[in-house]
Design a protein around this nucleic acid. Structure first.
Lengths: 174, 174
DNA sequence: GAAAAATAGATGTATATACACTTAAATAAA
DNA sequence: TTTATTTAAGTGTATATACATCTATTTTTC
C-alpha cells in the first residue's frame, strides 16, 4: 500500500516546491548486511533523523533560520511572554550540547529575540521573542506543519507505536 | 518490565565506564504538549538520534575518532581491500552532506587511511585503510558493539517493527 | 575533433557541535 | 564573615554541516 508518492509538493506559504524522495535504508546507505536488527535500527534512526532535519532545514532556510535557531524560537514561544535564561533554553533543546549563547547571539542580530540581564541573578541573561520573532516563528511553523502533513503520511496508531519503541530503545520504562 | 537499569557499564576494551541515563522524551525536552503523535514521533527520532550519537561518540573518543570518521572507516572496511573514490564513500554515508574530502584529510594525518590518485580517472582520488586503520577500526567496533549490547536491550522482533515503522515514516513501501 | 556540458573533488564561509576553560556571581562551608 | 565551592554564561578550538563556487578532467554533442 503506497502511502506517499515521490515527487514535488508545493508549499503555499513560501510559494516554493520541495522534492520528496523515497528510499529504503539499504539503498540510502548502500548496505545490505547488518549485524542484527537492532544495529540496523540504530542506523535507520540516524538516517531518518538526518532525513527529517534536511527536509525541515530546506523549509526553514526560506525564513533565514537554521534548525537550531528554530528550536530556540519554539522553546521561547512555549513560555511566551515569560523571559527564559540560557540554561532553561538549553535543557529543553533536542540536542543538549547545542551552544545556546551563540545561537541567541545570531537571533539577536536578526532582531528575532531580545536579551537582557536578569533582575534576580546577575549571572543570568534572559531572552524573549520580539514581535518580529513571533511573526517569523508563526509563518515558519505553518510551513513546517504543512511539510510534515505532506511528507509524512502515517496513521496515528503507527506513530504511537513508534513512540513506544523509541522509548523502549532508550531504555525508558513505558 | 524494566529492560535496562540506569547506571554505569564497564567497557572492557577501553577499560572505561559509561553512564547510562534513562529519560522519557517529555522529560528530556521538558515538553508535554505535542501537536499530534506524528509530531511527537519526529521529535522523538531527532532526540533518539542525538542520544545514540552522543553515547557512541564517547566510546569513539577513546580511539581518537569522531562519529563521521568512524563511519568513513566502516565504509572502507566494507569493500576492503578495494580502493574507494570520494563519491563512492559519500553515497554510503548516513549523513549525505558530510564533507568527505576533509574527513579523509584528517584520517590521512592520523595514518588510518592512504589516499592516491585514481589510475583510471585523473579527477578521482582513491582511498584505502592502512594496517593501523584496520586495527583501530576493529578495536573501536568491538567497543561500539559492546556498548550497543549493554545500552540497548530490545527484542529482535521489536527492532524489526521499529525498522518497518521508520521506513513507513519516510514513505518507503515496505 | 572542437565546443559545450557534466562530473569529481577541492576550497571557502557561516553556522553548529563537542568539549575544555575562564570569569563573575551566588551559595555553602569553615 | 571570610573562604571555598558551585553555578551561569561566555569564550576558544577542532571538527562537522550545509552550501556555494572553482578547477581540472571526462563525457557528450555537434
Amino acid at each position: 500500500m503506497p502511502i506517499l508518492k515521490a515527487g514535488k509538493i508545493y508549499l503555499e506559504n513560501t510559494c516554493t516546491y520541495m522534492y520528496i524522495c523515497i528510499v529504503k535504508l539499504e539503498q540510502a546507505i548502500q548496505s545490505t548486511k547488518f549485524k542484527n536488527e537492532m544495529h540496523k535500527a540504530s542506523l535507520n534512526i540516524l538516517y531518518t533523523a538526518w532525513w527529517l532535519k534536511t527536509q525541515m532545514s530546506k523549509v526553514l532556510k526560506e525564513f533565514g533560520l537554521t534548525h537550531e535557531q528554530y528550536n530556540v524560537l519554539r522553546i521561547l514561544k512555549g513560555k511566551y511572554p515569560e523571559q527564559l535564561c540560557v540554561k532553561d533554553i538549553s535543557c529543553r533543546m533536542i540536542e543538549k550540547s547545542s551552544n545556546v549563547p551563540r545561537i541567541i547571539d545570531r537571533l539577536v542580530i536578526k532582531k528575532l529575540v531580545k536579551r537582557a540581564d536578569s533582575p534576580t541573578d546577575k549571572r543570568e541573561t534572559v531572552t524573549t521573542l520580539t514581535q518580529a520573532g513571533l511573526a517569523v516563528l508563526a509563518a515558519s511553523t505553518e510551513s513546517i506543519n504543512q511539510l510534515m502533513d505532506e511528507m509524512v503520511k502515517m496513521e496515528n496508531k503507527e506513530a504511537e507505536q513508534l513512540n513506544v519503541l523509541l522509548e523502549r530503545l532508550r531504555g525508558t520504562e513505558v
